[in-house]
């Protein structure tokens, strides 16, 4: 989140977005540099997931500038242009959304070969490497319905990586998982960030956000309330609202901070 724009891979300037009468984003400014890991935290309904959807053009804001990897996303008018952008920006969702009729390997291979037109043999090789990376090599021929939630989510991450994205968006990827499998997914994301993948995470895992982020962004009511290094947001912020929100971190564990409730 430095001032230099040369290395900025994502830049949002005064982004406003409404769904019907509901204002979801009320002037978002955010700069993310290449190689950074940024966590977006904040209460439910604060617009966190919508920010991610703006970045890969799944939703289009009413006003504001969005630049992603050199592309002015807000100026894209055709669906075909948005598709070109999405091929370069990976996104992983809360509900994994693997294709249930395809094996794990085919889930990973489908988009690169059919959508990008990549070579089949090379893609299968890449897919097996990615499966090794997410520690699921032995599940290549299994179907999603035969895997646990944590395993499915790791396959979903491998599937996103197979597109060789320039950055990856993680939208509450552990929120649907039982506590025992959260760790295995976070492990994979941690590895990815260490490898230098630009990552933007919407998360309720405060400890994890603190550990892996270069920058933590706190959102509430469609605005960015504050951002900065994790140390600042989690431990030395002057903002009483943020102190209140992250307050559960020290005492209550992850259950207490989920959704900002119970505080």
């Amino acid at each position: 989140m430095s001032a230099s724009t040369d290395s900025a891979i994502v830049k949002l300037e005064n982004v406003h977005l409404s769904f019907g009468q509901t204002q979801v984003l009320k002037g978002i400014d955010l700069t993310i540099n290449k190689g950074d890991a940024v966590s977006i935290i904040g209460p439910s309904g604060s617009g966190k997931s919508t920010i991610l959807r703006c970045i890969n053009a799944l939703v289009t804001p009413q006003s504001g500038k969005i630049t992603v990897a050199g592309t002015r996303v807000d100026q894209l008018t055709k669906e075909s242009e948005r598709i070109q952008l999405r091929k370069r920006v990976g996104i992983v969702f809360q509900q994994y959304n693997l294709f249930p009729h395809l094996t794990v390997l085919d889930n990973i291979v489908l988009a690169p070969t059919r959508i990008l037109g990549a070579d089949k043999t090379a893609t299968v090789k890449l897919a097996r490497e990615l499966l090794e990376k997410v520690r699921l090599s032995e599940k290549a021929d299994a179907y999603p319905g035969q895997l646990s939630g944590g395993q499915q989510q790791r396959v979903a991450i491998a599937r996103a990586l197979a597109m060789k994205p320039e950055l990856v968006l993680f939208d509450e990827v552990t929120s649907a998982l039982d506590p025992e499998t959260v760790g295995e997914v976070l492990w994979v994301i941690r590895d990815l960030i260490r490898d230098g993948m630009t990552s933007i995470l919407v998360t309720h895992e405060m400890r994890f956000a603190e550990e892996i982020s270069d920058t933590v962004v706190f959102t509430e009511n469609g605005k960015i309330v504050d951002y900065g290094p994790p140390q600042q947001i989690f431990h030395s912020t002057d903002n009483p609202r943020i102190r209140q929100f992250v307050g559960g971190l020290s005492g209550g564990g992850r259950g207490a901070v989920r959704d900002g409730e119970g505080i």
């Binding site: 669906e79 598709i83 070109q84 996104i91 959304n97 294709f99 489908l110 990008l116």
Partner: peptide, 19 residues
């Protein structure tokens, strides 16, 4: 949500239908 995931990966509407 599955359709959104496919869109997020760069599938066109026809490709989502087809695959």
């Amino acid at each position: 949500s599955m359709i959104e995931a496919a869109r997020g990966m760069g599938f066109s509407q026809f490709e989502i239908l087809r695959y």
